[in-house]
């Protein structure tokens, strides 16, 4: 790790992890570490000897992890060519003894469980506790109710944000992803909340949000059927009851569906708006997620 601070290995709620800033002077270059509170941590103010200090504090039981936030290529280029960017500044006005200053952003987070105890250390916990749907998250939902204007769904799982290089989702930035998550399906966490008890988070897919083209001619009944499993993205937290979701992307839409309103077998997508049952050959209309 390229920072000078000694981090605690295991943290518990209230454990101070590090200050907000740290500095180091190396080869005439000032390095400023800007510690950014990530998941499982919070920046909290403390009074010490009459002064107010801010420190990153753990809010979960688990192992501390810190990683440098990588700059995008663009930013690095800019840094290389231009000396007076925000990232690098000459501290002194005289050009002879210029002290270069580099700011490193380091994300500090606490992951629940120990390194050993966790099956895959890149994923969050296996429930909603630290994994509530946020804006922009991809969720797996089940259709519960249809009307002319919208489809009501219940959220079954949230696709976890951090995903490793080798596992499908998000590995190439915001690239194309296999339906059902591909090999990244392991990152789906199934909610503990039982859908039978009405304890799940609910969502709405408005007819305008079903697809990105020809959106005012969408017929909801030709896009979803009750019981379908739909991959969708969270548009907003919505109102008290519902999240607002969208399927207006190629990789979003129905991933699993049964024929004949759930009476038949599983169907497979044949094109973006058609699904076929391999047993009977019957086709039904859906807004399918891109299968491959």
């Amino acid at each position: 790790m390229a920072c000078n601070f000694q981090f605690p290995e295991i943290a518990y709620p209230g454990k101070l992890i590090c200050p907000q800033y740290g500095t180091e002077n190396k080869d005439g270059e000032d390095i400023i570490f800007n510690y950014v509170p990530g998941p499982g941590t919070k920046l909290i103010q403390y009074e010490h000897n009459g002064r107010t200090l801010e420190a990153i504090t753990a809010t979960l039981v688990g192992t501390v992890k810190c990683e440098e936030e990588k700059k995008t290529d663009q930013e690095e280029e800019r840094e290389g060519t231009d000396q007076s960017t925000e990232e690098e500044k000459s501290v002194d006005a005289s050009p002879n003894d210029v002290t270069r200053r580099t700011v490193k952003n380091i994300l500090v987070s606490v992951l629940p469980g120990t390194e050993k105890g966790r099956k895959t250390n890149k994923y969050a916990n296996n429930d909603f506790a630290n994994n509530l749907p946020k804006e922009g998250d991809i969720v797996l939902t089940r259709v519960t109710r249809l009307s002319l204007q919208r489809a009501n769904v219940e959220i079954l799982a949230v696709e976890d944000k951090p995903s490793p290089i080798d596992s499908g989702i998000g590995s190439n930035g915001s690239g194309i992803v296999a339906a059902g998550g591909g090999s990244g399906a392991a990152t789906f966490s199934v909610s503990q909340a039982s859908s039978d008890l009405g304890e799940t988070f609910r969502g709405i897919i408005r007819s305008q949000d079903v697809r990105s083209t020809d959106r005012d001619r969408v017929k909801v009944i030709e896009c979803f059927k009750p019981g379908d499993i739909v991959r969708a993205q969270v548009l907003s937290l919505g109102d008290g009851t519902n999240y607002y979701l969208t399927t207006a992307r190629n990789d979003l839409g129905v991933v699993f569906a049964r024929a004949a309103n759930g009476a038949g077998g599983l169907m497979y997508a044949t094109d973006w708006q058609m699904m076929t049952s391999p047993v009977t050959g019957a086709t039904e209309k859906r807004k399918c997620a891109k299968p491959f």
Binding site: G14, L60, V61, N130
Partner: peptide, 15 residues
């Protein structure tokens, strides 16, 4: 309650 919340993995400012 504090222990149970920590066990549930719910974020606490402090114990």
């Amino acid at each position: 309650i504090t222990l149970a919340l920590a066990d549930a993995g719910i974020e606490l400012v402090d114990m």
